[in-house]
Nucleic acid binder design. Structure first.
Lengths: 373, 373
DNA sequence: TCCAAAACTTGTCGCGCGTAAAGATTTATT
DNA sequence: AATAAATCTTTACGCGCGACAAGTTTTGGA
């Protein structure tokens, strides 16, 4: 055992290599171990070695690793995050920005990414732009001041301060999810064309052709999905019927859809007996309004209206009636966004990862047939 | 103007006090300002003065403040978060732990706290324990390694590693929300006794006395609410009727309630025509199951079953039928938790804040009468 | 047994900033 | 105009750790 003698408590009291009583040792642990210096004295190794371990456990000998791990378990020591990241070439922080922290779609996506990040040794820091471009900008600046290793962003789209985002993108790798910022930046999301063709096809075959109930123009999906609907309809040589909705970037989808539907149903109803909504939350509003007006939603003979959504929110299957929708694969979106980011960071990927040349990934969606349409 | 001459770009090229062309200045900005040293040279002030400004803008003269603020706006400079927090007595980070990141109740609460924290100059770091005690523990250790100034935690309760939490509580101020960790730690939450008395009273007056449909035992609310229901019933000299549900700590409330309800309705139905659920998400599951079985939910004469919830989730009003429930005031919970924390941190409070001696705050809930009961 | 490679050691520097002390300058007060 | 108070500047240190260099010990293979 090679222990320097200048730290009083070490050799006999604290080293896990000694066989002192656990009680006594734990006392010492609680009182003293604050820094990696303390900790390295505790384990009886030099600080650089311990530092190496924390940066890459495999960079030290197995025996050494086991000694350190035992000591970590015993003392609960963890390197100070600020000190670690102050002096690193690249921090181990990932920045995530979502536009709405109460929307289950984004929280589910976030959760997935957090998990992957943690496994890869990164800490995910999540900020919400809360639908406001200025908050999105603030979040970006926060991440810049944190020198994040990379960032995954679900942008506000048209409202986003594109220059700022692109400028940040120059200094750190950024991946966009959910809705693209532009036509060239790395992106992972759902193929709206495919998903809307899927649902339009189904609705058309099984009943009335759908009209389209849009979402507020909060991001580019609002436009893309409307276009995708129109294309799918034209492909079937049907005339698209788009319901005009309020064009303010309001994230309270349910409420605006509810209010609009009440108006519509009181003034002659929808142009067709089938309504395809831009997303599930819009559909929730439509269904609730129909219920309250007394219009029966569903695909039975006794029903007045079919309603379909898009996204497959966690609650969609528990609606009355359960919502027919298209499932966005947020697990895959999260996984691929993380994979794309790690690829740009030069991280080792477990599975073989085929990177599309243009760094843009569009995932297919899956139709969820339920009772609402 | 007192500018040291040892930094080439300063006086003529970069100082905002000079009247150089904006173009030229912006070039300089982009290229060079990385540290507070750079920035202080840019504004033509000393670094300690600039440092003082960032710690408390009011600690410098108004004129100085304006100069710095203009330069901040122009350069976008923000002090490196890691460096700032490495050397501070107390960091400006608040740690928030919630048990489920996809539950709108917690996300709404979190959002509120984030906003308040930001206004007070703190950065809220949110971690989810995802229902798992080991993740809750990890989160605590992460916060410890970040030396967070304070923490707001919605604990897993019985499952929580109480010792760890209490140990952390010794070194940093901690406030518990939603469900208490024990009977003495600072806490802000809803008064389950009051809220359940409210809804039980209402349900009893307006129809059948309710039976109680519990939530999985994920935290102490599960027990407290059941007790609160029983008390409210006994007060009315009615016999409590509690439906036995699966006793695993499963956060997929809707699914477990849905499955259980299907079973119940197929085997003779509920003991009474009114079901009071431990929370709204449970009620969602019950309502969905009733719908699919063909049992009509609502308070009309043509209805078979009344269902009430607790919490007033954002979607509750859009259920079919809209859910009668009790609204937890998460705005107030968030505000008071933050206020309590800031009080312990010795922060100045805007409004007068009456601190209860035992640091425990129970808020009354408000009944939301809708169509489901 | 010997030797080179691997793994460790000691020592030092600096990341970007907070903080404190001591001196210089500006501002407000009389 | 003179003086005190407020505000600034200069200088210096250290937070906890990553990174690197140079020296020492351990390890494993022939």
């Amino acid at each position: 055992m090679r222990l320097s003698q200048d730290i009083f408590f070490k050799s006999t009291t604290m080293s896990p290599r000694t066989s002192e009583s656990v009680v006594k040792r734990e006392c010492a642990v609680k009182k003293t171990i604050k820094t990696m210096e303390d900790f390295s004295a505790f384990v009886g190794l030099s600080r650089p070695t311990v530092s190496k371990y924390f940066n890459d456990p495999n960079s030290v000998r197995k025996k050494t690793r086991e000694i350190i791990e035992a000591a970590v378990k015993q003392s609960g020591f963890r390197p100070n995050i600020f000190a670690v990241n102050l002096n690193r070439r690249r921090t181990n922080i990932l920045g995530i920005i979502i536009p709405n922290s109460t929307d289950p779609f984004y929280t589910a996506l976030t959760r997935r990414i957090e998990g992957i990040a943690e496994q890869a040794g990164y800490l995910a820091f999540v900020l919400s732009s809360d639908g406001k471009p200025e908050l999105e900008e603030r979040a970006i600046e926060t991440f810049k001041s944190m020198n994040v290793a990379g960032s995954i962003i679900a942008p506000l789209g048209v409202q986003s301060h594109q220059e700022k985002l692109l400028k940040l993108g120059e200094s750190i790798p950024m991946i966009y999810v959910d809705s693209p910022l532009d036509t060239v930046s790395p992106f992972v999301g759902t193929n709206n064309r495919q998903s809307f063709q899927l649902i339009v096809d189904y609705l058309t075959r099984s009943g009335d052709a759908p009209c389209y109930f849009g979402m507020p123009p909060v991001n580019s999906n609002a436009f893309e999905r409307r276009e995708a609907y129109s294309e799918a309809m034209e492909r079937l040589r049907l005339e698209p019927r788009i319901i005009e909705v309020e064009q303010t970037a309001n994230w309270d989808f349910e409420k605006s859809a509810f209010d609009a539907t009440i108006q519509i149903l009181r003034n002659g109803g929808f142009p067709t007996k089938t309504v395809l909504c831009a997303n599930d939350r819009v559909a929730f509003g439509v269904i609730a309004a129909a219920f309250q007006i007394g219009v029966k939603v569903g695909r039975g003979d006794d029903c007045d209206l079919r309603v379909a959504g898009h996204d497959d929110q966690p609650l969609s299957r528990y609606m009355c009636p359960p919502l027919t929708t298209v499932a966005q694969n947020y697990n895959e979106i999260g996984r691929l966004a993380a994979a794309l980011l790690f690829h740009k960071l030069g991280e080792h990927q477990d599975a073989k990862f085929e990177l599309p040349a243009n760094e843009r990934i569009l995932l297919n969606a899956e139709i969820m047939l339920r009772m609402s349409a």
